[in-house]
Simulated scan of single mutants.
Amino acid sequence: MSDPSANTLTILGCGTLGTAILCGIQDALSSSSDASSIPASIPSRFIACVQRASSGARIEAVLAVGASCAPTQILVNDNLAGIRASSAVLLGCKPYMVGAILSAPGVAEALSGKLLVSICAGVTIGQLHELAPKARGVVRVMPNTAAKVRESMTVIAPQMGLPEEDLEMVQWVFSQIGRCLVLEEKHMDVATALCGSGPAFYALFVEAMADGGVLMGVPRQAAVEMAAQTMRGTAAMILEGQHPAIIREQVSTPGGCTIAGLTRMEDGNVRSVIARAIEEATNVAGGLGGKKK
C-alpha cells in the first residue's frame, strides 16, 4: 500500500505568501501538458494549516477561482495532523512564531524524516535544525509579495548536503511564482532586504516619481501608471542582460532633461541613501529570528 503522505506538502501559516505559493503550484500542475517535465518529487497533494476558519474559507475561495488539479485539505488549529500527513512542510508563519510552532508537543517527532522549508526571515538553518533535529533536510527561502502576480524574486539557501531531489523540488515550486536563485545562507539577510523588503522600496520610488508628475500637472492615476510601467520596462531590459549603467547612459543625452534630473538626484545623495537602506534592512533582518549578534 502506498504511503498517503508521499508527495504531500503541508503549509503551516497559509497567509498571503503561502496562498500565492499554493496557487502557483496548482496552476503549474493544471496547465502542464507534459507530465515528464515535472519532477517526480513535486507535491501532488496539499494541506493548508491556518489559525482561523475565516482564513480557511479565504483559501478555498481563491482555489475555487482557478483550475485546481490537486486536492487541498484545510486544517484549522491542527498543525500536528498536517505535519504527520505530509512529506514536506513549508513554514510560512511570522518569524517570532517559529519557536512556539516547532516546539509544540509532538511536532519535532512528526517532522522526523521530512523536508522542512522555511520562508521566515531571520530564522537560520541552525535554529531550524535545533527545533526539528530529525527532519531529513532544511531549506531557507526568501520570496516576496510579488508572488501574488507570479513575479516574485526568490532566493533559496539549502543546508549542506541536501539531497538533489529535495533541492530540485524546492526550486521547481518557487519557480512557479517568479524567478529563483540558489545562494549560500550567509546571503539570506541581504536577500531579505533586497527581495523581501524590495517591493516596499520600489513602491516608495514609484510614489515619488508619480508625485513629481502630479506636481507638474499630470493626473494622479496616469502618473502612477506611467511611473510603474516605466519601472517594469526598465527591469525587463536589465533582466534581459542590459547593464543598468548602460541604460542610464543611453538615455542621458548631453544637455538633456535626463542628465539634469540625475544630477539633482545625486545632489540629494539618492544612490547612497538607497544603498544605506539595504544595509539597514539587512541588519534588522539578521535579528528577526532572535539571533544574538
Rank of each mutant, 00 (worst) to 15 (best):
L162H: 02
A40W: 09
G213C: 14
G18A: 03
R84M: 02
V123Q: 00
G178V: 06
A227P: 10
L128F: 11
G122A: 08
S252Q: 07
A277M: 11
Q221D: 15
K94W: 03
V149R: 15
V182N: 01
L239Y: 03
N144V: 05
P95K: 10
A81M: 02
C23N: 07
G56A: 03
N79G: 11
G217W: 07
G213V: 09
M97P: 02
L262R: 00
M226R: 11
A53R: 10
L75K: 09
P39L: 11
A235S: 13
V182W: 09
L80R: 05
E184W: 10
R276I: 01
Q171V: 09
T124D: 11
V89C: 01
M231A: 15
A85C: 06
V139Y: 07
G261C: 00
P95I: 12
A70F: 10
M188Y: 00
S197H: 14
T154G: 06
Q229G: 01
E165I: 15
V123R: 06
A281C: 09
Q73C: 02
K114M: 09
A88I: 07
A227Q: 10
S2H: 06
M169I: 03
C257F: 03
P199E: 11
A245H: 02
G241E: 01
N144F: 12
P95W: 13
G13I: 10
M265H: 10
T234G: 01
A6V: 04
N144H: 10
A28T: 14
I278Q: 07
G56V: 01
L116I: 14
